[in-house]
């Protein structure tokens, strides 16, 4: 997976693994032969919290999340989920290790039905505990409308419904950590509210959520912590309550390190 040997993470970043749902150290990644887009990210997230990543367009938020999910190979650094090193695993094995991912766009199979999307969510994932009919019932209870129209093509769903289907597919794998890339993109304000409520419900079900959002107001309302990503680096980390939107404007343009 990663051709470059991972640099040993700074010991301080990963001191007590049991306390971390997600731990990232010295993470670097980029596309093809291009330069790094993710330029050395260190981050630790406590279990059952919501952390929101915000940052200007093109700052590498999606690339960061893709690297965590395994779609973009890490050039250096280390990723741990509940204390287990997953840096070398394929995307699917990361899911089996408890890391689920909902992409920014094209996050469902549009030409497949709802039922088929839900089936595919787990049928090729091997070795994940807690995946089965019980989990399916719990997830469908969170998103009742999905159970009602199993034969509908996912491509024919509205933006909000599609987002719910994508959440449900991710949750069916019974993840410890859920990565969400801009779930509110392109949704109407009312649906954004519903989506954020769904994120809160997911957290209440015991899942740790790492959320990328452009919609800062909506994200701040539900997040425990905020990190700001500018040009591939984390430039600020703060409790959601301590951050005012006005402060963020300055950070977006990368003044602070």
């Amino acid at each position: 997976m990663n051709a470059h040997a991972a640099a040993p993470p700074p010991a301080s970043a990963l001191d007590d693994p049991r306390d971390h749902a997600l731990a990232v150290a010295g993470l670097r990644a980029g596309y093809g032969r291009g330069g790094d887009i993710v330029c050395g990210i260190d981050m630790i997230q406590k279990p059952e919290t919501i952390v929101t990543v915000i940052g200007p367009n093109g700052s590498g938020k999606s690339s960061f999340i893709k690297t965590l999910a395994g779609l973009l190979p890490a050039r250096a650094g280390r990723i741990e989920v509940t204390g287990r090193d997953i840096t070398a695993l394929s995307p699917a094995r990361r899911v089996a290790a408890g890391l689920a991912y909902v992409p920014q766009e094209a996050n469902v199979f549009a030409s497949l039905t709802i039922a088929e999307n839900l089936k595919l969510a787990t049928e090729f994932i091997r070795g994940r505990a807690g995946v089965g009919p019980g989990q399916r019932e719990r997830v469908l209870a969170l998103f009742p409308e999905l159970g009602q129209r199993p034969k509908t093509l996912a491509g024919n769903l509205s933006g909000g419904q599609r987002q719910m289907l994508a959440f449900a597919c991710a949750l069916l794998a019974n993840p410890e950590v859920l990565l969400l890339d801009e779930p509110s993109a392109g949704l109407s304000p009312k649906i954004v509210g519903e989506t954020m409520e769904a994120v809160v419900r997911v957290r209440e079900a015991g899942v740790t959520v790492l959320l990328v959002e452009q919609n800062v107001a909506a994200a701040l309302a539900i997040a425990d912590e905020v990190v700001v990503l500018v040009a591939g680096r984390l430039s600020l980390r703060a409790k959601a309550g301590d951050v005012k939107q006005a402060d963020l404007a300055g950070l977006f343009f990368g003044k602070e390190a």
Binding site: G70, F109, A110, F124
Partner: peptide
């Protein structure tokens, strides 16, 4: 339909 999403699903 979507090769990278399929990869995430273990396909």
């Amino acid at each position: 339909d979507n090769p990278s999403l399929a990869a995430v699903r273990g396909v």
